[in-house]
Computed example of a mutant assay.
Amino acid sequence: MSPVPQIARELVIPSGENKGENPSIATVYRLLAEGDAATETGRPYTGPQDQLIAL
């Protein structure tokens, strides 16, 4: 089983309409994919994952 559902449960959205909630599993997969794409190009990734906090 993938660890992504567990990761999603440990993250919290700190602001906005969904403040205090956990991101969806699809959002976590998308953030991981975007981070991988940025790493492949050699550029640092500074997308939405920077806005999530771990408990």
Rank of each mutant, 00 (worst) to 15 (best):
N22F: 02
R9E: 11
A8T: 09
G20A: 09
Y29M: 08
P48G: 12
P48W: 05
T27E: 12
A26E: 13
G35H: 03
P5H: 02
L32F: 07
P48R: 12
D36N: 13
E40D: 13
E40T: 07
A37E: 15
P5T: 05
T46G: 10
D36G: 08
G20M: 08
I25E: 15
A8F: 01
P3K: 11
G47C: 08
R43T: 13
L52Q: 03
A26Y: 05
D50K: 07
E21A: 09
E17P: 06
E34R: 15
Y45I: 09
K19A: 15
V28A: 00
P3M: 04
N18R: 15
D50F: 02
S2W: 03
T39D: 11
G42S: 04
G47D: 10
V4N: 08
G16L: 02
E40L: 11
L52V: 09
L55P: 10
P48H: 05
V28H: 00
S2T: 15
T39L: 10
R43C: 06
A33T: 12
E10R: 14
E10L: 14
L11D: 01
E10Q: 13
P5R: 03
A8W: 00
S24M: 03
L31K: 05
P14F: 00
P48C: 01
P23C: 05
S15L: 05
P3I: 07
T27A: 14
A54V: 13
A54R: 13
D36L: 05
Y45Q: 11
I53A: 06
G20V: 10
R9M: 10
V12W: 00
G16I: 04
Y29R: 14
A54I: 13
I53F: 01
L11G: 07
P44T: 08
S24G: 14
V28P: 00
Q51F: 03
L52F: 13
